[in-house]
């Protein structure tokens, strides 16, 4: 397998002491750009009175939440508050756990994804997901990214090459792996693996990207790269991210939803939630009194 192009040789990389592959955060991306029209935007995902059960355990209570298009929505809350459970309801990954049940509605572009006719496979092509722990397939870098398009029926090699390059570029990984696309994905570092998983999720051309604590297992430098990436991706995708660090939520998100014990306590523009929380529990949590 030969990469479609070779942008730079190894010598070039070593000759340049500080290549452009490691930009410092906040110098390249302007995180301060504020989205102030949250409510005016089309609402991509709308949850209405969602109740979720693991067998007898009532995990989510009456969650209603609107997720605006092309924004980053952060779900925060102490561990065990079921924010990940909610996230996994949006692409119906919870279906894989036996004995789970959901009542209420989750609308994607005004279509209820829990109605009986829903094709879960199509749904997951439109709602991509990045997991807490990077989970590349034990295959080559190329095969990892090309897998989504392949299972969607794209067989043409040139087309796949194009998608792989595009997605790796978008995930800011292309320059690091362009010359070793055939190498095993498991040889990449943790941060690289997670960006590969993002590239892989992008390859099915989703509308919505779900991220379940994507940076929790990474070092600060890799975390910063992922955060930059999220910021860049929100122009094209609607992103929902679960995070347990409030700083991360404040840095990357436009809207923040605070979950506590299976209930949605407060939701609003990130700046509002962090500067003037309306609920006592939210305030206690962001000021670090628990969690």
């Amino acid at each position: 397998m030969t990469p479609p192009s070779k942008p730079q040789s190894m010598t070039e990389l070593t000759a340049e002491p500080k290549p452009r592959t490691l930009p410092l955060r906040r110098t390249t991306v302007d995180h301060s750009r504020v989205v102030d029209d949250l409510l005016d935007r089309p609402q991509k995902v709308v949850a209405r009175d969602v109740n979720f059960f693991y067998g007898e355990h009532h995990a989510l209570h009456d969650v209603s939440l609107s997720i605006p298009q092309n924004c980053v929505t952060a779900l925060i809350g102490p561990s065990g508050c079921c924010k990940s459970t909610f996230l996994r309801c949006i692409n119906r990954m919870n279906d894989m756990i036996e004995g789970t049940r959901l009542s209420g509605q989750i609308l994607l572009d005004d279509v209820d994804i829990y109605r009986p006719r829903t094709d879960v496979v199509e749904l997951r092509k439109r709602v991509g997901m990045v997991f807490q722990k990077s989970n590349p397939f034990p295959k080559s870098i190329y095969e990892n990214v090309a897998y989504g398009p392949k299972v969607a029926g794209i067989r043409q090699r040139s087309q796949l090459d194009e998608i792989v390059e595009k997605c790796l570029r978008r995930a800011a990984l292309w320059e690091e792996v362009a010359d070793r696309l055939a190498a095993s994905a498991l040889q990449l570092s943790g941060g690289q693996q997670q960006r590969l998983c993002i590239a892989r999720a992008l390859a099915t051309d989703p509308d919505v990207l779900l991220m379940d604590e994507p940076a929790s297992a990474l070092d600060p430098k890799s975390t910063a790269r992922i955060e930059d990436l999220i910021f860049e991706l929100k122009d094209s995708y609607t992103i929902v991210i679960v995070t347990h660090t409030m700083k991360q939520a404040a840095r990357v998100s436009d809207q923040t939803a605070f979950f506590y014990e299976g209930r949605l306590v407060e939701v609003g523009a990130t700046t509002d939630v962090f500067t003037k929380p309306r609920q006592r529990q939210t305030e206690d949590y962001i000021t670090g009194r628990f969690g």
């Binding site: 092509k125 439109r126 991509g128 892989r200």
Partner: peptide, 8 residues
């Protein structure tokens, strides 16, 4: 999970 999440 990764495979299902990609619509396989």
């Amino acid at each position: 999970q990764a495979s299902f999440a990609l619509g396989a």
